[in-house]
Design a protein around this nucleic acid. Structure first.
Lengths: 120, 120
DNA sequence: CATGATACATACTTTGGGGTAAGTACTTGT
DNA sequence: ACAAGTACTTACCCCAAAGTATGTATCATG
């Protein structure tokens, strides 16, 4: 009885993990280097694309727009485009996105505690 | 004035993000497909290596041991090896690791809510 | 004497996320 | 006429995380 190979499980696993593991579900939504930072920037008020760019100068335009698209697809942020020229596009947190903020605060608290912990 | 290039920023960014962003700090500790699942398995009691393997049959031994090593290095789990043969090794959550459990529960709650949300 | 169980280790390959760099389309300012 | 600002898009590359497969050392059991 040879092992049965079931079609490269790399992406399969990801789906499975997301189904079984809610933590992975969250990670997939707010994971990646930039998404939490973007969410943090939008925690209070909506911001224009260019405002975000200036608020996070280290990010490339590609990554910014890519992250924003993903956040929008996962409807954590809402994109509002006024059909004027030059374009005027604002991004803001959706209800789901807003509910993420206290969660991120908890993560921050844990991070502070953990980084200050002394091991015996 | 040409742009100044500051030594391939890929790993630099990661470090910077971790310093500035506590969420990223958390992600780096419990990110990856397997770590949250392992922590979940250990949330109540310690488990042997082989118990973990059987509890998460889809994981490969390489990934299991790798994740465990990283969790140990970040001292979220504690490895206890009895010098007998056959080897008897148990893994359990450290204090830091245990404090992660309520955080993960919050993530789970958000995940449930979010996945059940209807978009208008 | 070979198989299975214990708990790993290690070489090799794949793949997708992130980075670099450049282009697009349209208008205002000088 | 040309730079600058708006908000993107696209082609290409690189690397680290994850996966595949196999090896190791010891003992018990059939």
């Amino acid at each position: 009885m040879t092992k049965i190979k079931e079609s490269s499980s790399i992406s399969l696993n990801k789906g499975l993990a997301e189904l079984t593991c809610p933590v992975t579900y969250v990670m997939n939504k707010i994971g990646g280097h930039w998404k939490p930072i973007i969410i943090y920037q939008l925690r209070e008020d909506a911001k224009r694309y260019s405002e975000l760019r200036r608020a996070i100068p280290i990010i490339t335009e590609k990554m910014l727009i890519q992250s924003l698209k993903q956040l929008e697809a996962d409807n954590l942020v809402i994109r509002k485009a006024e059909p004027v020229v030059p374009p005027f596009v604002t991004y803001s947190l959706s209800p789901s996105g807003r509910e993420l903020v206290p969660l991120m605060n908890m993560m921050a608290e844990w991070a502070i505690q953990d980084s200050g912990r002394v091991m015996l």
